Amino acid sequence: MRMRPVRLNAATASLFIVGSSCFVLGSVPAYSDAVGGVGDALTYFVGSIFFTSASYLQLLQAQTPAMTDVDESGQHVPQPVTLWRRRPDDRGWLAAITQFAGTLFFNMSTLAALVQNASVQAQDRRVWRPDAVGSTLFLVSSVFGILAVGSLWSWRPRSLPWTVAWLNMVGSIFFMASALASYVLPGTGDTLDERLAVAGTLLGALCFLAGAVLMFPAWRRAVRQRRVRPAPERQESE
């Protein structure tokens, strides 16, 4: 399979934008009231599918250097895509593979949330636990993402990759806060903190949305700054 690097990046960013928008929409109380519990849960599930699709494309980028190491002209040249390759020494790949795993857990939790009138035990086992694991994996992925562009203590607000990495980190923190607040108390069946759960999802999704939008200018800046590689000189035959 061959793809143009610029199109792969655009597809990844676009899918993240749609997925994040679904989570933002699902977190708006007025929307939830309008579509009902099932409609709201379905919105989250659809958003999680877009998240997973985008995350897989980002994994393809991370394990195919030819998809990112291009200049302005090379970004339009179709390149072979590596469908699977372990790169444990590459922090960008570690961020991508960990994020992809996290999205799969979100698929499970949002799908399980479609079941109505589930018992408290079932909600904690099938919805809350995968949500907590997915949020944890997102946090780990965000750490790898920051390390891929610098260090945890660097301050580079003019760098778009740095900004995107930290937006993802803040978004992951909000998602974790939402996951913890979503725990269903066994004794009463009430959510630990409903307001925090909704606010955490909303703010986290907004951070992911902003990071996804910035992937477009970050790409354009990167290919502009990358020097064009001269063609190898041919040796004249004697």
Rank of each mutant, 00 (worst) to 15 (best):
T68W: 11
V6D: 14
G145I: 02
S151F: 05
I173Q: 08
V198F: 07
V127T: 06
M1F: 11
R126N: 12
R87H: 08
A62E: 12
F216H: 11
L57D: 01
G200S: 12
P65D: 04
S21N: 01
Q63F: 07
R220A: 09
M108H: 03
R91G: 03
Q116E: 15
V38D: 10
L206P: 00
R226S: 00
R158P: 01
E236M: 14
R7A: 14
A30P: 09
T64G: 06
R234H: 12
E233H: 13
T136M: 14
A41I: 12
S53D: 08
V164L: 07
P130Q: 05
A113V: 07
G19Y: 07
V127Q: 02
M108P: 02
A62T: 15
M215G: 12
I17Y: 04
S119D: 11
S178N: 12
S135P: 02
T188W: 08
L139P: 03
R221T: 13
V18T: 12
A205M: 05
Q123A: 09
S53G: 13
T136A: 14
C207P: 01
A181D: 01
G150D: 03
W162I: 00
D89F: 12
V213E: 03
A165G: 05
R221D: 13
V223S: 01
F208D: 03
T110S: 13
V164A: 03
Q79T: 15
T68H: 10
I173W: 12
R221A: 12
R226I: 05
D193G: 00
V70P: 05
A113D: 15
W219G: 10
V18I: 14
G92Q: 11
L83C: 07
P5T: 07
F50T: 03
R126Q: 11
C22F: 10
